[in-house]
């Protein structure tokens, strides 16, 4: 029986890249309104898991359920329609398009023009810098601004579930803090979030729980408190 409180459930997921198994039989779930985080070293299978959820990769085995319904064989552009938005690793903003066009593309499937306008204003509320640069080509933005644009663009599809892949990568500490504040703010508006992070400490501080991945397997489920109480854990997985 499926628990209706779960917005997304991943069950026994196995994903391969060619002949190499990147994700080995992992299971986890996220409830409506939660933030959860996937943490672990590079190559542990975090991004692969997100890519399987958004339909970019086809799982070899296992199930992904969005509000109880399987996402099997649903192409990425349909997954967006069902309410999952993915801000991918490396931002992947459209450098040859303007900031406005990038945001408009985020709302590609929506036809409700007034609501799209409101959502764009909401994004500008979160990231005022983007509004200043609205007519600029996205390729001319700084790294931090590009990250803001990637998150803003993902929000433009009005998702129920947001997948964020390393939003703090390569950003200055002050900016990292600001980005995490915004993630909390987005979550407060009712969007569930799966956060993939290398910055495990920061991520766990805002997440309900974290799943530690090691070479494609979930080895541990942790909370922010575990960081305080469990010295060993901190040393082993969280670098300090």
């Amino acid at each position: 029986m499926t628990d209706n409180n779960f917005i997304l459930e991943v069950k026994n997921l196995c994903v391969f890249y060619g002949g190499i198994q990147a994700v080995k039989d992992i299971s986890f779930g996220i409830k409506k309104g939660e933030i959860i985080t996937l943490i672990g070293a590079t190559g542990a299978g975090k991004s692969t898991t997100l890519r399987a959820i958004s339909g970019l990769l086809k799982p070899r085995e296992g199930e992904i359920l969005l509000e109880g319904r399987s996402l099997k064989n649903i192409p990425p552009y349909e997954v967006v329609k069902k309410g999952i938005s993915h801000a991918p690793e490396g931002r992947k903003i459209f450098a040859n398009l303007t900031v406005r066009e990038n945001l408009e593309l985020g709302a590609y499937l929506r036809r409700d023009k007034p609501a799209i306008g409101q959502d764009m204003e909401r994004v500008f509320g979160l990231f005022p810098r983007l509004k200043e640069r609205i007519k600029q080509n996205a390729g001319t933005l700084s790294g931090g601004e590009q990250q803001m644009l990637a998150i803003g663009r993902a929000l433009m599809s009005a998702p129920k579930l947001l997948l964020l892949d390393e939003p703090s990568l390569g950003l200055a500490p002050l900016l990292v803090k600001a980005i995490f504040e915004v993630i909390k703010e987005i979550n407060a508006k009712g969007v569930s979030i799966i956060l993939v992070e290398q910055n495990a400490y920061q991520a766990l501080k805002i997440a309900a729980r974290g799943y530690v991945l090691e070479t494609g397997k979930i080895t541990m489920t942790v909370t922010a408190e575990d960081l305080v109480t469990n010295e060993e854990l901190r040393k082993a997985y969280l670098g300090g």
Partner: peptide, 24 residues
């Protein structure tokens, strides 16, 4: 046009375009 924007996005990065909901 919207389809033109989708063309430019697809040309830049097909995978990212698909994540926008574009049927590439």
């Amino acid at each position: 046009t919207t389809i033109g924007k989708a063309m430019r996005a697809t040309a830049f990065n097909r995978e990212a375009a698909a994540l926008m909901g574009i049927n590439t």
